[in-house]
Amino acid sequence: MNIRVSDIAAQTVSRIEVARVSISLGEGVDAFEAIRDLNFAVVPGEFVCIVGPSGCGKSTLLGALAGHLPLTQGQLTVDDQQVLGPSPDRGIVFQQHTLFPWKRVRDNIAFGPKMRGIGKAERRRAAQELLKLVGLEGFELFYPSQLSGGMQQRVEIARVLINQPRVLLMDEPFGALDAQTRSLMQEVLLDIWTKMPTTTVFVTHDIEEALFLADRIIVMSARPGRVIDDIRLPFARPRHGELVTETSSCG
C-alpha cells in the first residue's frame, strides 16, 4: 500500500448520527449525567463545531464518538455502523501532549500504518507525504519535546490523517496554543481540510474559532449537556483570517 495525498482525498466521507444519546460518568455517589438525550446528524463532508461552557459534556461526546466512552442510552452510528470501540476510522486529536514522547516525528506519524502491518520503508514514505501536507518537512527525526506546541499539533493531525479516517474528531486541538499560533493553525487546518475533505467534529469553547472553521455550529447547554442551538454558517470558502476580525467587529 502506498499512501499519497491524492489517494487520501479519494477516501469515503461519512455520515454521523447521534440518536437519543445520554452518558453518565463517575461511579457510585460521584456519578453524574454529562450528556442528556442528544440528537443530531452530521452529513458527509461537513465541518461541525460544538461549542458550550466548560463541563457541558462536549469532550465527553467526542470521547464517545471516538469509542473511548460507553453510552448510557441511545446510539452513535457512523455510516449506519454502530460505534462500539476505538477505530482508526475515527481519528481523534486531543489538546496537547498525546504524541508518543519516545518516538521521532516520523515514527509517531507512521504508528497507524505500523499497526496495520505495513513495512518500514513503505510507512516512512507515507509519513513523509503527510509531513509535507502539514508543512513540517525536515522535522522527521525530531522528538516531540523538541517541537513547539503548534508543530506538535501538526504532527498530531498528520498522525491521524495517515489512517485515512472517515471521521476527524478534534478536542480543542488548539486550546493550548498562543493566539497567534492558534489562528495560523486554524488556517493550516482549513487548508488541509480543503485538500482532503473529511467529516469533522471540532470541539471548542472559542466562538471565534468556531465561526471561522465551521459549516455549522452546535451549541450545548451547561451540564447535563443538551443541544440548545444549531446554526448553519453562510460564509463562503476558502476562508482567511480577515473573516474572524470582520465578524468580531460586527458583533
Binding site: 471516538a66 469509542g67 473511548h68 470501540g85 476505538p86 477505530s87 482508526p88 475515527r90 481519528g91 481523534i92 486531543f94 501532549h97 498525546t98 508518543f100 504508528f111 497507524g112 499497526m115 496495520r116 498522525r159 491521524v160 489512517n163
Partner: peptide, 15 residues
C-alpha cells in the same frame, strides 16, 4: 502511564 497516550494508541489501531 498517561491514559491519553493509551487512548490515542487505541484510536490509531493499536492492539
Amino acid at each position: 502511564i498517561d491514559r491519553r497516550l493509551v487512548a490515542s494508541a487505541h484510536s490509531l489501531g493499536g492492539t
